[in-house]
Design a binder for these strands. Structure first.
Length: 880
DNA sequence: TCTCACACGC
DNA sequence: GACGTACGTGTGAGAT
């Protein structure tokens, strides 16, 4: 092999598709079509094209249910499991894919892929050809010759093992031609080939090595040792011969194409990319350099729109879609670069300078009876507010709708939604504006068209999405919860939180001093100056220079995380100082410097942004800055909260948090008697858990028992694994596993709920919360243990955490309403998952306290009471 | 500009 | 029996 001019690659299509299907988790693309086999197949193809650079190529498929072999033996391939429908449905795409790659494919009635491959390989194997056969089926090893290599998939899809004549011999001790003799004797359960009973691989190989073929073995039965073996061979002569026959790949399949018809001349990305896009193979697109710019400029559908310089009332129909374009990621005080809207009268682009001066437009904008359909209305609301404009009458938000329909999609611009629903093409913002430092406004006519396309698409997609929400029984969740919430959040973001810059700066200076001292001490103890913030350098100092025992490693070196350092405490003075240095360093960089960076100079306020369409569980997240992770656990960090104050010196900060909301939700959903009792009797839930798990009375619960119980409750709420629990309790995984088992036995209702959740996920493909929020878990049926386990824990955990999110969101919407009704000046400022933060004049505090408790506790009705703790003070620190 | 390790909250 | 194990955001280091 080697220097021959022609290289033929033959692929066993069915075998590779099966391999890919079972090697990869069940991926779907955005249309819900399974794509894992197609994906794996494509990876394999690309690898083959790259590694082999074939001049000729063909992919063979099995055709039909029966083959000529069934005439010999009707039970051939009997008892085989039916091809899973998830795989069958992918074959058409594999064919499409091959066509796009311009690779010949072939199938023939009554013959298997093997036979097509065997026939072509035999045509080729005469000196000038270099042939490679790719398959997952060891049977094909019989085709190996000095000119033909058979490449078997090993594990996964891209890991392969090539067999030459020598390697077959090395592995089996026989020649490739003798593979069929071996099969004749040992049979092949996967194809239901019987062989000789009692003869397995070992015996078969021994006999073939000795006698050369099945025929010779049968002739020599007399001299074979072992009475039982002798008997079996003579009783099954016919069957052995038939088995050999069945295992033999024909080299004379009546194919109507010759080897010269398989020439391969490469493929054009232009024909492959669209299919990759359709299938959602972003990583492969990237790998082939298939970013949007490289794509052929496909003809975009025409859209007629008007560029208007005067806004006429007849352009502002009810309803209309509305696009308010901002380019900066942070929309607080963002410039607006253009306005577009679309309705039954047409699609219009309005330069912002014109829009902002138009009374007609501004009146329409703030008219709550004029309905607007938008994408990310919160962004527009805040941006407009920054320009002194009011936006009301938001009837629909495509971004929120798409999040509710499937939170994992993360469709963050209209173009994504357009792509998903296959409407009018909208270019991605990145394509139109560029990214990073190069991001800029395009020519005016490009902007006009881009925004018009967005507006038109938004208008047309509203009904489609609304209908889907209806189908999913998510209309209430959308119209009564998320949509109103987005405007509540907009208000909170606009309001912002006042911080005392001086307090932060003072703390910063203090930290600075302590850090300098610590740094000096650490360097002295180490005997060398180094960067303590560099895990790499720190690891070298601790584990090499100071020879402390390294307990854990990371991909890149020694781990120096807290749990590692804590184990080393007492072994060296330096450890404790490093721990304190880390703690204080974190405070300085993230919380002092980080927060100071985002304080608005003129107002001393911080305006975060809540992301309403990100967390898979339905929770909110907070960025720029993240105000949901301000320190509280350790005193040093907690002091940061002194800097968060009310915007008016006369006002106070009030914080209200749900007590054990997740466990209360769990009690309600699972209807577990023990757990419900804990809350109905207002017991300490961790103590109650310890009582039930350890079978002791309340007085007998030790702090150790309570700590364990608390960790398990924590695990239940966050869906951690036995491993996670073992880590948090410092026990072994096995102990943790048993502990979880005991817990579940003590709370049979919870155990039943866990089981039901998994079943539900398997049946529906998703789990849901009290208010019908969904999370799809396609990996729940994965054959990959990790993926499946993760999906199972998610199935158990998401309804709990998601329902808790539903509840606090409902409380926020209600609270916003009640503050208006009760004519309170108090303002809602922040939400931290199970907590709401307000600012209010001191004289309102009593009323607010009562109101917040009432609203939060009554947000939904569960079979256990919801409990809220409220506290208030001059700062967030005092409100604890 | 990206990835990694780490650390903060719930 | 191994797999790598709640979610989110932000930081500095170090490689590109």
């Amino acid at each position: 092999m080697g220097n021959k001019t022609k290289k033929l690659v033959l692929i066993d299509g069915n075998s590779i598709a099966y391999r890919a299907f079972f090697a990869l988790p069940l991926l779907n693309n955005d249309k819900g079509i399974y794509t894992n086999a197609v994906y794996g197949f494509t990876q394999m193809l690309l690898k083959i094209l790259e590694d082999e650079k074939p001049t000729h190529m063909l992919v063979a498929f099995d055709a039909g249910k029966t083959t000529f072999r069934h005439k010999t033996f009707v039970e051939y391939k009997g008892g085989r499991q039916k091809t899973p429908p998830e795989l069958s449905e992918q074959f058409p795409f594999i064919r499409q894919l091959l066509d796009a790659f311009k690779i010949k494919r072939y199938e023939l009635e009554n013959y298997e892929a093997d036979d097509i491959i065997g026939t072509l390989a035999s045509q080729a194997a005469e000196g000038e050809w270099d042939v490679k056969v790719f398959t997952g089926d060891k049977d094909l090893l019989q085709l190996v010759t000095p000119d033909v290599e058979v490449v078997l998939t090993r594990k996964g899809i891209t890991e392969v093992e090539a067999y030459t004549v020598e390697q077959v011999n090395e592995r089996y001790g026989i020649t490739p031609e003798q593979i069929i003799d071996m099969k004749g004797l040992m049979g092949d359960p996967s194809d239901n080939i019987p062989g000789v009973p009692g003869v397995g691989e070992k015996t078969a190989i021994k006999l073939i090595k000795q006698y050369g073929s099945v025929e010779n073995v049968l002739e020599a039965i007399g001299e074979i040792s072992g009475a039982k073996l002798k008997e079996r061979l003579s009783e099954n002569k016919e069957q052995a011969l038939m088995s050999k026959d069945l295992a033999t790949i024909t080299k004379e399949a009546p194919i109507d194409l010759g080897i010269d018809d398989t020439t391969y001349e490469g493929f054009e990305t232009a024909s492959v990319f669209p299919l990759f896009k359709e299938l959602g193979f972003q990583s492969l697109l990237d790998r082939l350099g298939g970013d949007e710019a490289a794509l052929p400029d496909t003809e975009k559908e025409e859209l007629s729109f008007q560029r208007v310089s005067i806004i006429e009332p007849n352009m502002l129909k009810n309803p209309s879609s509305l696009v308010i374009e901002t380019l900066t990621e942070d929309y607080h005080k963002a410039d607006i670069h253009g306005v577009a809207l679309s309705n039954e009268s047409g699609t219009y682009y309005v330069p912002y300078d014109i829009a902002k001066e138009s009374e007609t437009f501004k009146n329409w904008l703030q008219d709550k009876d004029q309905k607007k359909i938008m994408f990310d209305a919160k962004r527009a609301h805040v941006a407009l507010k920054g320009q002194g404009l009011d936006l009301n009458g938001i009837e629909f938000d495509l971004q929120l709708a798409s999040y509710l329909l499937n939170p994992s999609e993360s469709l963050d611009e209209i173009a994504d939604i357009a792509k998903q629903y296959g409407t009018l093409t909208v270019d991605s913002n990145e394509k139109v504006y560029g990214k990073g430092a190069k991001k800029k406004l395009p020519e005016d006519d490009v902007l006009a068209e881009h925004l018009s396309r967005k507006a038109y698409t938004t208008f047309t997609l509203k009904d489609v999405m609304a209908e889907k929400l209806q189908e999913n029984e998510q209309s209430n969740l959308f119209y009564d919860l998320e949509l109103p919430l987005s405007l509540v959040l907009a208000k909170m973001e606009e309001t912002g939180v006042k911080v005392k810059v001086d307090t932060l700066k003072k703390m910063g200076t203090d930290l600075e001093g302590q850090l300098t001292t610590l740094e000096k001490e650490i360097h002295e103890l180490a005997g060398v100056t180094f960067n303590i913030n560099s895990p790499k350098q720190l690891g070298e100092i601790l584990f090499e220079k100071l020879s402390l025992p390294a307990v854990k490693k990371t991909k890149t070196g020694y781990s120096t995380s807290v749990d590692v350092l804590e184990k080393l405490e007492g072994k060296h003075e330096i450890i404790n100082k490093i721990l304190i240095y880390r703690q204080l360093g974190k405070l300085r960089s993230t919380y002092i410097e980080g927060l100071l960076k985002v304080v608005h100079e003129d107002t001393d306020k911080i305006h975060t942004r809540f992301n309403q369409v990100l967390a898979q569980t339905g929770r909110l997240s907070s960025i720029d800055p993240n105000l949901q992770n301000i320190p509280i656990r350790l005193e040093a960090g907690r002091k940061i909260r002194h800097a968060f104050v009310a915007s008016n010196p006369e006002w106070k900060i009030l914080a209200a948090d749900y007590s054990q909301i997740e466990l209360r939700v769990l009690a309600h959903i699972s209807q577990d008697d023990n757990l419900m009792e804990a809350f109905q009797k207002e017991m300490d839930v961790h103590t109650k858990t310890a009582m039930d798990v350890f079978h002791v009375d309340e007085q007998e619960v030790t702090s150790e028992m309570r700590r364990h119980a608390k960790a398990v409750n924590f695990g239940i709420v966050y869906g951690i694994s036995d491993y996670g629990l073992s880590q948090s309790l410092g026990i072994t995984r096995k102990e943790a596993g048993e502990f979880i088992k005991t817990y579940l036995e003590s709370f049979p209702g919870v155990q039943q709920y866990m089981k039901d959740s998994i079943t539900e996920a398997k049946q529906n493909g998703y789990v849901s919360t009290l208010l019908h929020r969904r999370r799809y878990l396609p990996e729940i049926n994965s054959r990959n243990f990790n993926l499946r386990s993760f999906a199972e824990r998610t199935a158990m955990n998401t309804p709990i955490q998601g329902t808790a999110a539903d509840i606090i969101k409902k409380a926020m919407v209600d609270m916003d309403q009640r503050l208006i009704e009760e004519k309170l000046e108090a303002k809602m400022l922040l939400t931290v998952h199970d907590e709401l933060i307000f600012e209010a004049p001191e004289q309102e505090i009593a009323k607010l306290k009562k109101l917040v408790c009432e609203v939060m506790e009554q947000a939904v009705q569960l079979d256990v009471p919801l409990k809220v703790d409220v506290s208030w003070g001059d700062s967030w620190f005092e409100a604890k």
